[in-house]
């Protein structure tokens, strides 16, 4: 059971760190792509961003994980960080598309109204567009977090070993099962329950945030 708790903690930490990276990255990429729509200086950065989202979303996350952990970031003792970075980068690509869609879903009259009052593009974005976009994006971001949480279960494939004691939840249950002579049922069910609880917690938090953000809608 100790393994499970440790795995649980590792899974949470990895997910949170990856979510943080993913949100920042996704936000920047989304804004660059939107800015490129009417600013020719952003065209080249936007192209880079497009390559990023295309490549990341076009290849399996397991492949990306192997590539990062065993090739690109194959420094000694860096496995866990490399994995977190991989998941962050991976999540960023999906999050950026969500945020981009969220921004584009805001009526373009909102930007025009801001600009017609003499408010610069950036300020209109920050004061008017983002707050409205967030409302539309939160559910999708929640889904992305849930997917990411579960994606981290593949991390065992690259080396959750007994020596370093860095299990994630899934690997921990596998380890216990090995210890029990291959009785996978019980440990897997327990690990599954943990996943379920976290996912449900995320769903609840998202609901609460959504409720708060709806205050400017018709009551």
């Amino acid at each position: 059971m100790g393994y499970i708790w440790q795995g649980f903690g590792n899974t949470l930490v990895m997910t949170l760190a990856a979510v943080a990276i993913g949100l920042v990255l996704g936000f920047v990429v989304a804004v660059v792509k939107i800015a490129a729509l009417n600013n020719k200086w952003m065209k080249i950065p936007a192209f880079v961003c497009n390559v990023y989202t295309t490549v990341i979303r076009g290849t399996p996350v397991a492949l990306q994980l192997f590539l990062m952990v065993f090739a690109i970031l194959a420094f000694p003792g860096f496995k866990a960080s490399a994995a977190i970075i991989t998941f962050g980068i991976n999540s960023g690509a999906y999050v950026s598309e969500n945020i981009r869609a969220g921004i584009l879903s805001v009526d373009k009259g909102q930007m025009e109204a801001g600009r017609s009052l003499g408010i610069p593009w950036t300020q209109t974005m920050v004061r008017i567009i983002f707050p409205q976009a967030i409302k539309n994006v939160i559910p999708a971001i929640g889904n992305e977090m849930i997917a990411l949480l579960k994606d981290t279960s593949i991390i065992g494939m690259v080396g959750a070993t007994v020596g370093t004691l860095t299990f994630d939840l899934n690997a921990a249950s596998g380890q216990i099962a090995l210890g029990l002579g291959g009785a996978y049922l019980a440990p897997s069910l327990i690990a599954g329950c943990f996943y379920l609880v976290v996912v449900y917690a995320i769903v609840l938090v998202i609901k609460i945030i959504e409720g708060r953000l709806r205050k400017s809608d018709r009551r």
Partner: peptide, 9 residues
């Protein structure tokens, strides 16, 4: 504007 474009937020 035709559609008012008040800031919804």
């Amino acid at each position: 504007f035709q559609h008012f474009n008040l800031f919804n937020n």
